[in-house]
Amino acid sequence: MQLRSLAICAIVFFTAGLAVASFAGFREFIPGLLEGALVTIQITIGGCVLAVVMALLAAMAKMYGPAPLRWLAVAYIEVFRGTSALVQLFWLFFVLPHFGILLEPLTVAIAALGLNVGAYGAEVVRGAVNAVPRGQWEASVALNMPRTLALRRIILPQAFIAMIPPWGNLFIELLKATALVSLITISDLAFKAQQMNQTTFRTIEIFTIVLVMYLAISILITVGMRWLESIAARGIARGRSQ
């Protein structure tokens, strides 16, 4: 129910935005900003995928890895959580070339944001795994499952459901942080907006459209996560509401 109303909300917002834009002479900005939005979406998707992978790896290494892996995971989490995303971005973009590593701006953007959000995500994963009742581990031992099997088949699927809402938050954080990549020469939504603003000085129109576009993308993320939650919880919740 909530899911549907949110989806409708997103569509209404978006069409209303476009309608207003076309009436009030906003129209000329739309193609350029949509181009920027596409880049923003690309970076968001790439960053989210990397963040999930890194979070899972770091959390598993921190919880179950041998000592060196554990230290590595702790170092990764602390460094990327404890320093500014902007500085990380600059570091990968401006410092790495000094060591002979030259990366595409888009690669740097996805890497920096993905690693940054992945560090937060690692703690989300760890918290969710720890929240699975101990009895589930004990039942796995009683059925003679090796730990990796128990983790993969019993613990993580249950932890996954608890992880979805906080991951929704992190994905939206990541989306908003993509605005930083305009500072390393990428023409994302924020960059396009600034560029147009500097040439036309139509500040009100441009930044209103940009605001609505960010909002629309973040609502899409929320809708997607709710949907994911509803399918993931189907098995466990079945019958509970009866």
């Binding site: 589930q136 039942a139 009683a142 059925l143 699927p157 249950q158 098995g235």
Partner: peptide, 18 residues
């Protein structure tokens, strides 16, 4: 350990499986 099975006070069934 494969010789032993256990039933718990709180069942500990896997809730995500039939």
């Amino acid at each position: 350990r494969g010789n032993i099975g256990m039933v718990f006070q709180h069942f500990n069934l896997f809730p995500h499986m039939s």
